[in-house]
Design a protein around this nucleic acid. Structure first.
Lengths: 213, 213
DNA sequence: CCCTCGCTAGTCAAAGTTGACTACCAGGTC
DNA sequence: GACCTGGTAGTCAACTTTGACTAGCGAGGG
């Protein structure tokens, strides 16, 4: 499950036709550089790779109007659209502890219709529950917890994280069920990408304290 | 910050002298294959790379007693020990949202003394607080939250995750302060690695439901 | 006594990630 | 009019990660 691929496919799809730098800006607008590994190198690599695999179609265009090297524009193919929705559905249902996947799914969930988003999130709840059950069973030594010593803290941390994830998901489900946000097929969609030339209110390279360096 | 490096250094250090397969088994014993990218390829790669960089010293040994190809044993160098403690301290103090780093730190924190572990975790609390403050300031549009539409859910998720992380850390600090676990210099350490030939009670390739595939 | 199974111990090519670097142009400035 | 800054658009080499593959040995079944 590559978060970059999901994000890049989502960005290209919303634009219809986009070049690398636009995608890069969208991801920054979404804050993706903060919670995922969305860096220039990864983005351009993903575009090229997915073009090679037929998920995107590359158009070589004339050198840009505003300086810089000639740029390549990409369009999503039918195969790419299928892959996009596959990744998006997976990001919302699977519980894999790495929060970047879920974040990407949240940013793009409105490309689904409301009913499906709800169904996927319900499925997520079940997945978390099953994960929790299997892990607590599996890692509890016969002579009770505590037997693991400080290693047990790791498990405690996972399990409580899973509980937190479930609780948060439940809240999200309620908000969506109560009518929050605009999903596919519900009129004017939320504008999630930057138009050509629009400035990004959140774009700075600023670091936050506590960031790992 | 490479989790693999931290884990591998920690495992080699506890053994005194270890070959790749032993390290691999320790990481499985710690459950690291569940919450980090500890796979054979990564482990062997990290060993080789760190040997090249002088963090480990490699001994070529005779073909093993129990079949298989000739194996290489590694010992940690002084430089490697420094790097190990640097990574370990960083894993406990820095807040980077990816839970694998913290998990590794938890598994290895008893290599520090109790006072230092507590100080580092207090530092972690402060880092989470600063991170939270800077992010909520920075990403709150002038016309109030909600302005971000569903994209705001991503931020809500991060911020609440940070709160959860802080709360959990506080609990851990209390347990440690109350005398839980055995830290460096406090007598018989907890046995965190498998002796040669000891079987691993948690070793199966079993998948858990909800795992991403 | 042969054959398969599973464990030990690891390799390798392909893919992905990182961080630093390039080149070009516009606009201000000394 | 030379220079410097900042934005646009992207490349590249070095490194890391992934998942599938290899090869040897012992135990046990037939």
């Amino acid at each position: 499950m590559s978060v970059i691929r999901l994000l890049v496919l989502g960005a290209v799809r919303q634009h219809g036709r986009a070049h690398g730098y636009q995608v890069r800006n969208d991801l920054e607008y979404w804050g993706a550089h903060e919670w995922s590994n969305a860096k220039p190198g990864s983005i351009y690599h993903a575009l090229k790779q997915m073009a090679k695999q037929g998920l995107l179609h590359a158009h070589e265009t004339a050198p840009s109007t505003a300086g810089g090297p000639p740029r390549t524009e990409y369009e999503i193919t039918e195969q790419g659209t299928e892959e996009y929705f596959r990744l998006l559905r997976e990001s919302l249902t699977s519980y894999d502890q790495k929060p970047d996947v879920l974040s990407a799914g949240l940013g793009l969930m409105v490309d689904l219709d409301r009913a499906e988003a709800l169904a996927l999130l319900e499925q997520r709840m079940r997945a978390i529950g099953e994960w929790r059950r299997s892990v607590t069973e599996y890692y509890t030594p016969e002579d009770g917890p505590g037997r693991l010593g400080h290693i047990g803290e790791i498990m405690d941390f996972w399990v409580r994280s899973a509980d937190f994830g479930a609780e948060w998901t439940r809240g999200l489900i309620e908000r969506i069920r109560a009518g929050a946000y605009t999903f596919a097929g519900e009129g004017e969609p939320f504008v999630g990408v930057l138009a050509e030339g629009e400035e990004n209110p959140y774009a700075t390279g600023e670091r936050h304290p506590g960031d790992a360096h």
